[in-house]
Simulated scan of single mutants.
Amino acid sequence: MREFFRKWWDGEFIPHKNEPNSAVFFVGGTDKRHWTANRARWAVSFYLREWKWVIGSVAAVVGRSS
């Protein structure tokens, strides 16, 4: 299960395409992630940046509805 989650979270690395007989060589590539992994990364980074406001807002909503 851990390996499945890691593969989903990291995505697939796609290296740059290089011509075999070219004098120019590109190093690197891009990560192709599933759209749900992109949304999860956004939510986690938002929470880590704004945890003070998220916890306060949730506490206010829960306290108000009780």
Results as ranks from 00 to 15, higher is better:
residue 11 G to I: 00
residue 14 I to P: 00
residue 60 A to L: 06
residue 24 V to N: 03
residue 9 W to G: 01
residue 62 V to I: 15
residue 28 G to Q: 01
residue 60 A to P: 00
residue 3 E to Q: 06
residue 65 S to I: 07
residue 50 E to S: 15
residue 28 G to S: 01
residue 16 H to C: 03
residue 31 D to V: 08
residue 21 N to P: 00
residue 47 Y to S: 05
residue 14 I to Q: 06
residue 18 N to G: 05
residue 34 H to I: 01
residue 51 W to R: 13
residue 8 W to Q: 02
residue 50 E to C: 15
residue 53 W to S: 09
residue 36 T to L: 14
residue 66 S to W: 13
residue 34 H to V: 02
residue 6 R to H: 12
residue 38 N to I: 08
residue 7 K to C: 11
residue 34 H to C: 02
residue 32 K to C: 09
residue 4 F to Y: 13
residue 46 F to T: 09
residue 41 R to Y: 04
residue 65 S to R: 08
residue 43 A to N: 01
residue 33 R to A: 03
residue 17 K to E: 10
residue 20 P to Y: 11
residue 48 L to R: 15
residue 1 M to E: 03
residue 62 V to L: 15
residue 45 S to D: 13
residue 14 I to E: 03
residue 24 V to Y: 04
residue 59 A to Q: 10
residue 7 K to F: 11
residue 14 I to W: 00
residue 25 F to A: 03
residue 27 V to W: 00
residue 48 L to V: 12
residue 61 V to Y: 11
residue 53 W to C: 04
residue 55 I to Y: 05
residue 63 G to S: 05
residue 37 A to H: 00
residue 59 A to H: 07
residue 63 G to P: 00
residue 65 S to L: 08
residue 50 E to N: 14
residue 32 K to Y: 10
residue 19 E to K: 15
residue 11 G to N: 04
residue 17 K to T: 08
residue 35 W to L: 09
residue 19 E to P: 01
residue 61 V to G: 07
residue 36 T to Q: 10
residue 64 R to M: 07
residue 18 N to R: 03
residue 24 V to D: 05
residue 40 A to D: 04
residue 36 T to S: 15
residue 64 R to F: 05
residue 44 V to T: 04
residue 64 R to V: 05
residue 54 V to L: 09
residue 35 W to P: 13
residue 6 R to N: 10
residue 44 V to N: 03
residue 22 S to L: 07
residue 57 S to N: 09
residue 64 R to C: 06
residue 62 V to G: 05
residue 18 N to K: 04
residue 52 K to H: 13
residue 11 G to K: 01
residue 61 V to W: 12
residue 44 V to Y: 01
residue 35 W to M: 08
residue 43 A to P: 00
residue 51 W to V: 12
residue 38 N to E: 09
residue 49 R to F: 14
residue 26 F to V: 03
residue 21 N to Y: 15
residue 14 I to T: 04
residue 3 E to D: 09
residue 28 G to K: 01
residue 10 D to Q: 14
residue 13 F to A: 06
residue 64 R to T: 10
residue 1 M to C: 03
residue 2 R to H: 02
residue 66 S to F: 11
residue 1 M to Q: 04
residue 20 P to D: 14
residue 38 N to H: 05
residue 5 F to M: 14
residue 56 G to L: 13
residue 16 H to A: 04
residue 7 K to R: 15
residue 25 F to T: 07
residue 11 G to C: 06
residue 25 F to C: 06
residue 40 A to C: 13
residue 33 R to C: 07
residue 17 K to L: 08
residue 33 R to M: 12
residue 53 W to I: 05
residue 33 R to V: 07
residue 40 A to K: 06
residue 39 R to Q: 09
residue 55 I to H: 05
residue 51 W to E: 15
residue 16 H to R: 06
residue 9 W to H: 10
residue 60 A to C: 02
residue 54 V to D: 01
residue 56 G to M: 09
residue 27 V to A: 02
residue 26 F to P: 00
residue 11 G to L: 02
residue 59 A to N: 12
residue 1 M to W: 06
residue 40 A to H: 12
residue 13 F to Y: 10
residue 3 E to T: 02
residue 20 P to F: 15
residue 45 S to R: 14
residue 45 S to T: 10
residue 60 A to M: 03
residue 15 P to A: 14
residue 57 S to W: 08
residue 56 G to W: 02
residue 31 D to Y: 11
residue 15 P to K: 10
residue 48 L to W: 09
residue 50 E to G: 11
residue 20 P to W: 12
residue 61 V to L: 15
residue 5 F to N: 14
